[in-house]
Design a binder for these strands. Structure first.
Lengths: 343, 343
DNA sequence: TTGTAGGCGTTATCAA
DNA sequence: TTGATAACGCCTACAA
């Protein structure tokens, strides 16, 4: 494989000059010389060796995407794809490469990610999904390694993050149901160890409270520990408690459960998603949902990370992007369903 | 950041010894010495610099996944996720890193991928999806760079590949419909510039022929040029021609079209997928489909690539993994639908 | 069993 | 405007 020295020899210049041509600086090169160099590069089909360049420059121009959950064999991993697309897009536009880090061997998170950081495999790390342990993220950030979290943040810690606005999303969704006349609104939540679990619940309660609708614990189901999908029993118990509408971040699964329980959407119960899955649009009953700007979250997270890498940290440490309410057919005005007046 | 020299000094040994400890060879190290070295590494929180190691070893222990289509803003990109999971799994199990290469800027494929190959950014390349231009793949393979194609091959060229058996899959699907009593079987195909477009069509015809069912061109729709999804018009024209069952690699989309046209599945028309989408299982009418072993394809492609990298090429250049027929509810026995006897 | 030193291919700092 | 050369951090052949 041709090296910079081969090019220098062939073009009759020094390696330094070749380097300046390759990198467009830091010193100018006479255009006649440049031409000779470029031609030599062309003829030898020369491309600078990445490893050597990384070593000399002391940076890799690569970022890692840690997405431990990708190892799990569950359907929800498709959820992450849009983030990855945004990440990949922004990285490439900025001349950075993207490494996929999944910790399949399930070694201790701190050990795994610290090794990556200290070995300078990448210049910075993006953390995606809740399977990444908080202590690992916090430790790396504290050690000064460029780190950005996506789609969540760690309450009480200053770690840079970009996420959808879960509060605003859940608030909007709840308001939507209220405005359409529903009062008995069920809520299938996530464990409260995640910021989004907390935020969604608070938003739900706030929206109810503003509408003077009393909060009814029997209409709310929050798991003790993180879980991916609501169980049929969870859904059944809310139905038994008399809900006429449901809020959930797993709309497709809940829809399947409802079907299995013999309940129609929206005739028997309205359904609104808190975190759009790609499924919503293609189902027979297109689902009303709140859509997170995943691509944009990924994109902005990269841009934030690159600023951290460049030593030019952005002023805002936690960026929150608004969710968008997509009204489809699973949440028609309550009256149209011909129900009795709200209680 | 601590270097190997710092460790050597602290442990009172030479850098060579430290290196042998790190790499477990090629020379043995006395266990007392090893302990001192390991402790020094621990205390200084030392991790070998990846770039330096790559430069010295002349390999990166990373593979690239080229998936140009990821840049497109279409839903079908979720299709690739299972391959990526298999790739990521196998790579990590073998100590390799995975780089995501998407060519977002849409530079010429050959230029783009050759630069990656010659700059030794990765040790080998996996090509996923039909958006990668054939000439680029062929050229790299010819230049001796380790390359494996996933989910397709290039007819008439010796490029290593791992793919689902499209022929067997389509044959199985067609047979399934025939065995269930259908005779007027429509076929929505892909352009014939891809091996899977050809194979599926051939398999369909072969299965019909074996069952003594004449081939009817009006029941077949093949686009001139590659397209992602069948149009509603395509579907409508097959229906107008009187088909009572449909084969398609875009089952979810076709189902939506059918719904829009007011046709029920399976009452009005049976539907069988040729390339399972994740959607099939969650729809109200769970779809019969042929499932490609995507995870396994990804995994085996990595293993094949690693053998190429190791200079130990496998004997079989084109691996084909069987698809699995998943019988669900969109293709019940024809008689049960209460139709007249087959023509 | 361990130490020394040259090489991997760039970048960047000196001089000229 | 250009050339020579010392890093960058690790690996490994050669010596000891």
């Amino acid at each position: 494989m041709a090296t910079i020295r081969d090019i220098a020899k062939k073009a009759g210049v020094s390696v330094a000059t070749v380097s300046y041509v390759i990198n467009g600086g830091p010193r100018p090169v006479a255009s006649a010389t440049r031409e000779r160099v470029l031609q030599a590069m062309e003829e030898l089909n020369y491309h600078p060796n990445t490893s050597a360049r990384q070593l000399a420059r002391q940076r890799t121009e690569a970022i890692g995407v840690a997405i431990a959950g990708l190892g799990e064999d569950n359907f929800s991993s498709a959820y992450f794809l849009e983030y990855i697309r945004g990440i990949s897009y922004a990285a490439e536009m900025n001349g950075y490469n993207v490494l996929l880090l999944t910790n399949q061997r399930k070694t201790d998170g701190l050990v795994f990610y610290r090794a990556i950081a200290r070995s300078r495999l990448v210049d910075g790390l993006l953390f995606l999904g809740s399977s990444i342990p908080d202590p690992a993220v916090i430790a790396l950030a504290r050690e000064g390694f460029p780190v950005v979290m996506l789609a969540r943040h760690i309450p009480g810690h200053v770690v840079y993050s970009v996420e959808q606005d879960y509060y605003q999303g859940a608030y909007t969704a709840t308001r939507h149901l209220l405005e359409r006349g529903y009062r008995r609104i069920g809520f299938l939540g996530q464990a409260l160890c995640f910021n989004y679990g907390i935020e969604r619940l608070q938003a739900y309660r706030q929206a109810l409270s503003e509408a003077q609708v009393p909060y009814e614990p029997r209409w709310v189901s929050i798991p003790e520990t993180p879980r991916d999908n609501p169980t049929p029993e969870e859904v059944a118990s809310l139905l038994a408690a008399g809900v006429e509408a449901l809020l959930t971040d797993r709309e497709a699964v809940v829809l399947a459960h409802l079907r299995a329980l013999g309940r129609r959407v929206p005739e028997d119960v309205a359904l609104v998603g808190l975190d759009e899955s790609e499924l919503g649009a293609v189902l027979e009953v297109p689902l009303t949902t709140v859509r997170p700007p995943k691509f944009e979250v990924g994109k902005q997270a990269v841009e934030m990370l690159l600023r951290l890498i460049a030593g030019d940290p952005p002023a805002t440490q936690q960026v929150r992007l608004p969710m968008e309410l997509i009204v489809r057919q699973s949440s028609p005005p309550r009256q149209r369903l011909g129900r009795e007046e709200p209680v």
